[in-house]
Design a protein around this nucleic acid. Sequence first.
DNA 1: AAGACAATTGTTAACGTGTGCACAATATGC
DNA 2: GCATATTGTGCACACGTTAACAATTGTCTT
Lengths: 336, 336
Amino acid sequence: MSVTIKDIAKLAGVSHTTVSRALNNSSLISEETKEKIKTIAAELNYTPNYNARSLVLDRSYNIGLFFSTIHEGTSSSFFYEVVRGVNDIVHKEFKLIVSGIDDYVDFHSINRKHFDGIIVMSQSTKDDSFIYNILEKNIPLVVLNREIQDAPIMNILSDDRNGAYKAVEYLIHSGHKKLAIIEGKKGFKSTQERKDGFFQALIDHNITITKDFIVEGKYDSESGYKAMKELLRHSDTPTAVFCSNDDMAVGAMKAIAEQGLKIPDDISLMGFDDNVFSPFLSPALTTVKRPVEEISKEGAKKLLDLIHGEQVTKEILHINTRLQIRESVGRMKVKD
Amino acid sequence: MSVTIKDIAKLAGVSHTTVSRALNNSSLISEETKEKIKTIAAELNYTPNYNARSLVLDRSYNIGLFFSTIHEGTSSSFFYEVVRGVNDIVHKEFKLIVSGIDDYVDFHSINRKHFDGIIVMSQSTKDDSFIYNILEKNIPLVVLNREIQDAPIMNILSDDRNGAYKAVEYLIHSGHKKLAIIEGKKGFKSTQERKDGFFQALIDHNITITKDFIVEGKYDSESGYKAMKELLRHSDTPTAVFCSNDDMAVGAMKAIAEQGLKIPDDISLMGFDDNVFSPFLSPALTTVKRPVEEISKEGAKKLLDLIHGEQVTKEILHINTRLQIRESVGRMKVKD
DNA sequence: AAGACAATTGTTAACGTGTGCACAATATGC
DNA sequence: GCATATTGTGCACACGTTAACAATTGTCTT
């Protein structure tokens, strides 16, 4: 079988306690014996049995990264950036367990023994039962992407509303008055936020909108395609369309091209997210950069602080979005 | 603290041994006491301590999913599909730990105690030291995406070479004779496979190619953009370009558009992978579907078989690619 | 020289589970 | 009615680690 501290103890002629202490750099042990024990351990290629250690220390060395779902509605670039961001921060100290909240029928098996800390990348209010469950169990927790009010939870968000606002303002300043919106997936918080920002900008600039210019999407390219088709069916078409994410913007571009229209000459398009491929679309997509990786990293850092016992109080951290101006939005000719 | 089998034992008036057996459905225990114990356990909201169980059973309930890297060269849709595919199969029984091989300086801490099984999504020969290390440690292992010869390893691959071959054949049958290739990231096995398929098709159809029509890429959109720029710099340009993946095809499309050329009228484009957004590009990208999710699922299933002790012998499973004909490849006018 | 005290190491128990073996209770066979 | 299976349960230990407490040695103080 594998090497244990008792094996090392025998070889070193000491007790296994001494070995344990030496390997953990306890100040109780003399430098001399530490040295001796460590070399023996290295020679034997010793690795501690984490299960045994976990049992007595009541730590798991696991961090859970939970998505609302890893099936639909999660765009791949979003998923990738989140995992990468979190992994970057925690991988030295922890194992990263990735799963979907909807993988669980009950949250029975999720407890302190399994997870030293949990990061929830939350998309919808459906996650609340999960989140409050974790909270009750007193597991260090950080919730990303969706604001949880009235609870002592560390919260990291992008200011989607403000991002959408700035985007729409840019459209307006470019002379557009007939604006449309393709909304995100129903029930997702981000859908609402971006929509709110969109409308707030309209209100603040005294711009009206007809019901026909508000269409639903599902955050995937196909739904963006269909939504744009819908917008183009009417005789009166918008001059600029705000897509609630880039994936849908890609679909919208296709619908526009099929209609024989040109972007941005005939119609302008604004995205949201700034996916990796967005600068390479033709025309390059003007969009709002959502700092997904930054949010994830920031969240992971906060979680580590929490785990390491730093007294962090509830905090809602907003990370700025940034307008990425490219080629898909054109300036309206001012008629006078 | 949390409930243990001893607590249950006290309440039931039996020994903890009986409780353990009852909960594990041992045939030694009468149905009657089983029933009693299970209801008590349910009432107390008991969850077994996996660390303790792992310690004595020498199982971790973890499955490791290792990518060569989760930084560069891994496209997001690829990453997403792999995680999703594997998770689908294993999430009921195991926790899924995701990490990058390049996160580790040595493979010391990777052993049977931590992982009941490991799936490697391998991109390059650099992974070999890791793979052989796992093999030595006798951990159930499945390697996806890259063929490992001369070792008793379960292997699941897509036939990239054949896929590329079919793609190029399609280009040729469409009348193209001046073909170019944008290669993938150097050192990646898939790069070589696709390149091989490309050239084999040329050879079999007696088509020559000039050195200028072979350019390197890195699998990301930017490199595709640059590569295509390069191809278009010469006075003599190809009539069709085989891009080693869809991400690069997106970049290539942009370069072509900037040159004022039209796809497929002036130049035809072939991709590889069939990303989610590929059908929604303008024009929709003709490409080769690589069954990433299927490979991942198949691999995960094989791994479970291995873990459950089914005597599975080394096997190399090829999963078919499929040509997805869309709009980006045009028929050459036959001059006579 | 005896006691106090610091430095280092050892003894023993604990974490929560599973299991070989012994044992009790009951059923079966003659 | 006794010996023998059969069935159900408990005792004691093991897994590999950490930690409270005890023990040993050496040094210093008075």
